[in-house]
Amino acid sequence: MADLAWKSQGRTRRSTRTVRVAVSTVSTVTVAAVALAVLLVPPLVQLDQQAVDLSMKLRPPSLAHPFGTDDVGRDLLLRCVYGLRVSLLVGLVAALAATVIGTVVGAAAAVSGGWTDRALMRLVDTFSSVPHLLLGIFVVAMFRPGVWPVIVSVALTHWLSTARIVRSEVLSLRSRPYIDAAISGGATRWRVAARHLLPGVLPQAGLAAVLMVPHAMWHESALSFLGLGLPTHQASLGNLVQSARGSLLAGDWWPTLFPGLFLIIPTLAVAGLAGAWRERLNPRRRSELML
């Protein structure tokens, strides 16, 4: 009986592990492919993504145009790659900025405590109480359409959760006896922060940042879809979906489907990678994985 129980447990473990390895492999390959595509295609492929050919408008996928063409005859595969490039750039920069703001605010709140802590966290609550897409729309509405307003808008609305995570993590680390031991060993406030607190918090903040990249891409798309994000001539995944809206009703599915997939697939891949990373976060688990 005990033997049987042990066996079945062993099998589940092995199969979940296989799934985990498969997910992380597929995610890694996808993310690598996305990175290669956005980095290499524009310099290597000497085709103009803006090239209009009205004789070729709204052609379904074919060998010459694997993703088909849009309503003014531009090649959709090329438009998607350029769109992904812009969306990814916005996502990366916005996520990085949001993480830096969140980490600084969260750490400052935890370390200073008292009134500063309370004031900062109430600020976070206030921001969180407004739907963040709405807040983001307010920000972009103040500027001319472009890449930077979108980045600012996404960064300013997405540092809140990181600030909460970092604050609670710092608070929990700060009460550990090894911090007492460091203080007793002559460490200054700065040394404790730099040597013990920050390295403890960074993996969490990094994970939050990675998970935020696809989220920020979706925000860019949402803003562009609403006509508030990037200028319409600039290919971004949101703009592509937006301009394809009309043709979808006429039965032309490809201008909507492919940009949509370009948005969904990297998102899933990043989520898969982040899951694998979370597994490796704690040092104990890391050495088990090495064995």
Partner: peptide, 9 residues
């Protein structure tokens, strides 16, 4: 408790 008194990193 040595486990809690040593920075795990």
């Amino acid at each position: 408790q040595p486990r809690l008194s040593a920075d795990p990193r």
